[in-house]
């Protein structure tokens, strides 16, 4: 049973990965990474339930938080760089 779920999660991750590699825009890539991140959280939860160890859910929790932070960080970086490019163009 858990194998089926793990495989379906992996399939989702692979499709999202293809999207991340194809692009076409940067936002598509970030979105795909976000999806992969959420799926990893799920995969970790599945694994920890299979192993029957509560402490492994901690890792999933950390992922959920870190995933959010890195998406925000990437977005800010990109907005920031855009402003700078605009500055350079004005000069």
């Amino acid at each position: 049973m858990f194998t089926i779920i793990s495989i379906s999660i992996l399939v989702v991750m692979i499709i999202a990965l293809i999207r991340a590699i194809l692009g076409p825009t940067l936002y598509d890539r970030i979105l795909a990474v976000n999806v992969v991140g959420t799926k990893t959280v799920l995969l970790l939860s599945v694994l920890s339930v299979t192993a029957g160890r509560g402490d492994m859910v901690d890792i999933a929790l950390v992922y959920a938080l870190i995933n959010f932070i890195s998406v925000i960080a990437v977005l800010r970086f990109f907005e920031y760089n855009k402003e700078q490019q605009a500055d350079v163009e004005q000069q």
């Binding site: 499709i15 999207r19 979105l31």
Partner: peptide, 9 residues
């Protein structure tokens, strides 16, 4: 999940 991924594609 798979549906969403298909949509993503």
């Amino acid at each position: 999940g798979i549906t969403g991924a298909v949509g993503l594609f």
